[in-house]
Design a protein around this nucleic acid. Sequence first.
DNA 1: TTTGACCTTAGAGTATACTCCAAGCTTTAT
DNA 2: ATAAAGCTTGGAGTATACTCTAAGGTCAAA
Lengths: 138, 138
Amino acid sequence: MYRIGELADKLSVSTDTLRYYEKHKLLAATSRADNGYRLYNEEALRVMQFIIRAKGVGFSLNEINDLLSIKIDKASHSCADVKSFTEQKLTQVNDKIAELQCFKGSLELLVAACCGGEEEATHCSILSALENVDAINK
Amino acid sequence: MYRIGELADKLSVSTDTLRYYEKHKLLAATSRADNGYRLYNEEALRVMQFIIRAKGVGFSLNEINDLLSIKIDKASHSCADVKSFTEQKLTQVNDKIAELQCFKGSLELLVAACCGGEEEATHCSILSALENVDAINK
DNA sequence: TTTGACCTTAGAGTATACTCCAAGCTTTAT
DNA sequence: ATAAAGCTTGGAGTATACTCTAAGGTCAAA
């Protein structure tokens, strides 16, 4: 059994993070010692590792909560459910990439059009573009 | 002169957004009517348009605040300053894209490896991967 | 024993960008 | 005149994922 600091160290997370996850129903302590300290068993360690891996591929904590619900009761869910869930996440990620690519394109145009010299920003093409409609929205 | 609702309608933003921007020093009302109502002139409209355009290329409100400081006092800043600022933003965007591409890669692997059938999630390769180290981090 | 590390709780704070609530005054249209 | 829309303020809430604060109990090492 681990105390909270021990588990936190083992996983390179903070004790506050563990308490936060407990508050948000992601991971409960396995039990409490007589003095009120949280105690976590090996299964709790494995759940935390699951959470960390899921975060590592981009799932939010809320999404991870959903995945944990599936994990706990695999018999009630299908492979299709999990795949669909993951595909939705993938779509979100793709959408966000697309948005950022759009920003990137605009920013690159701005940067490319700017002389970047030491003269006053009075005639800065980037500022001008943000001030007027033409240079960006086209 | 516009009242807050008129400016908000003209720009398709909410009155709350305008008050929020005032509170955060992005845009002050030009003046106040005798009844305390905010009044905005054409310059305020142009500043809001600047803000909206800057948001449209990915700058955060804090970053836009910095750009507005430059805009107000162009003589104290160079084209190089603005270009550098924009390049930094571009770098952030690129970094975020890279992170998301990494997530995308992992998620695609997960999705590709999953049979997606109606059988119970008991043997779901996605869940297994999140439960174990091997399938993702390789 | 003393001190410092460890742990508890409740709640507030941070960052970001809004949005909502409550109470009350003003303006507009019927 | 009345009702509804418009506006004010202060402050709290939402979403997301932590992090910090304050007060106080527990444990381990010197």
